[in-house]
């Protein structure tokens, strides 16, 4: 079973590699590309920790073969901050709003929220909650994750962020 030659753009860099067809995208990213930001949580497409952006879609990279991503444009959490290290609005939001505790789900949460805010720059709380419904957090109870995304949306839209009263 021959390896397949693939090329992809990952975080703005063109890469090429040989992959076994059965190699999952998450294993390719972590083990061959050494991008360990996307995490392996459940490995059964439930938890969303492995979420990456592929061709303008949020996908669970544990349920995509690397060969399916041949030619794709991929962004992982490593590609979210600016080249000079300046955090993205979402990363800043997670920092300011304490949107994480253990941090395991955070790369998937931020990568998913990134696509959500591109598609819907001013989401309601309900839209945020449904938008991240494919990502599981076992620490926060989601409250601060939702606030972090609201914070990022406000930043992106250039309006002041007002924390909702509880």
């Amino acid at each position: 079973m021959a390896k397949t030659h693939v090329t992809m753009t990952i975080n703005g860099q063109e890469v090429e590699a040989l992959v076994e067809p059965r190699t999952l995208l998450i294993h390719f990213l972590r083990e061959q590309m050494l991008l360990t930001g996307p995490h392996i949580g459940c490995e059964t497409s439930h938890c969303g920790a492995c979420t990456v952006d592929m061709n303008d879609m949020s996908v669970k990279s544990c349920t995509v073969f690397a060969v399916q991503a041949n030619g794709a444009n991929i962004t992982t959490i490593e590609g979210m901050a600016a080249a000079d290290g300046t955090l993205s609005a979402l990363q800043e939001g997670f920092r300011m709003m304490h949107g994480l505790q253990c941090g395991y789900c955070t790369p998937g949460m931020i990568t998913r929220a990134h696509r959500l805010l591109i598609e819907n720059p001013d989401p309601t709380e309900d839209e945020i909650r449904m938008g991240i419904a494919g990502n599981i957090c076992r620490c926060t109870g989601y409250q601060n994750i939702v606030k972090a995304i609201q914070y990022a949306a406000a930043t992106i839209n250039g309006v002041p962020f007002h924390e909702a009263a509880e």
Partner: peptide
């Protein structure tokens, strides 16, 4: 059906 990530594919 499923969740946002899965609905993309």
């Amino acid at each position: 059906i499923a969740d946002p990530q899965i609905r993309y594919l």
